[in-house]
Structure formats: C-alpha cells, structure tokens
Amino acid sequence: MFWQIINFFILVFVFNKYFKKPLGKMLDSRKKKITSDLSQAEDTKKAAIELQKESEEILRKAKIEANEILKTAEKKADERREAILDEAKTQREKIIKTAEMEAIKMKSDAKEMLQEEVKVLAVKLAETLIKEKINSKIESTLIDEFIDEVGEEK
C-alpha cells in the first residue's frame, strides 16, 4: 500500500511536470473554441431572427401591394365594364334610331306607293265611269235618234 501511495505521488508529479501545461493549453483552446462557437451561434441566431423579421415585413408589404394591385385591377375592370356598357347603350340607341328612320322611310314609301296606286285606280274608275256615261249617252242618243227617225218615216 505504501508503494501504491508513492506510485500515486510520482504519477501526480510527472503529470504536473509534463502534462499539465499541454493539457491546460488544449483545454483552454477547446474552451475558447466552444465559447467562440457559442457566441457565433448566438450571433447567427440573432441574425436569423432579424432576417425572419425582415422576411415577415417583406411578406406583409408584398401582401399589401398585392391587395393594392388587386383593387386597382378591380377598379380598372369596373371602369372597362362601364365603358363597354356605355358603348353598348350608344350602339343600341344608334341601331334603334336607324331602325326608326328605316321604318319611317318604309312607311313613307308605302304611303307614296298607295297614293300612286289610288291615283291609278281613280283614273281607271273615272275612265270606266266616263265610258259608261258616254256609252249610255250614245245609246240613249242613238235610241232617241232611231226613235225620231222611225217616227218621221211613218
């Protein structure tokens, strides 16, 4: 047991003499590396949080801009729809006016044609009546003359 204690102290002495400084340096460098890695990880985490906030802000702005674009597009669509409706109403009114003018013209043409036909029929009727009167006068004159002639011969 005595020898084990002596052996232990010798090991402690050798360890302190030869291994303490290199192991201490290695542990210190390892500690510094771990500390720097932790601080770097903390900085990276902060940067990531900041980038996340920026991306959320950009996304919020993009949504607002998209809504504005959508509202503008809807407004333009409404304006275009109104313009198309106004144009359609104008064309409808032009078509109605044109149709009314054509109807008036057709009515006038039909009236003129009827007047011409009435004139022709009136002339024919007059001719027929005149012929009948002439024929009846001629007949009555002829009959009267015949009677007069027959009466004088007797």
Rank of each mutant, 00 (worst) to 15 (best):
I58L: 07
D144N: 15
K17F: 08
L51R: 07
F15T: 07
K71F: 11
E79F: 03
E145T: 12
Q52D: 11
E112Q: 12
I49E: 15
E50M: 11
R60D: 04
K46E: 12
E139F: 12
E79P: 00
V120L: 15
F19R: 01
M1A: 14
I84Y: 03
K105C: 02
K76G: 04
K76W: 13
K63D: 06
T141N: 13
K131D: 05
E102C: 01
L142D: 03
E42Q: 07
K63M: 06
K105Q: 06
L125D: 09
L129N: 09
N16P: 00
L85V: 10
V118S: 11
E153W: 12
T35W: 11
I134N: 08
I58Y: 04
I138Q: 10
G24V: 00
F2K: 15
I134V: 06
G151A: 08
N67Y: 09
A48W: 11
A66W: 01
I34E: 13
E87Q: 11
L38R: 02
V150P: 01
E145H: 14
K63V: 10
P22S: 14
S108T: 15
V14K: 11
K94V: 01
V118K: 14
R92N: 12
N135T: 10
N67C: 09
F19T: 07
I34C: 02
E127I: 05
K133D: 05
L38K: 01
L27R: 07
D43G: 01
E79I: 10
K107I: 13
S140F: 10
T128C: 05
Q40C: 04
M101W: 15
K31T: 01
I58K: 08
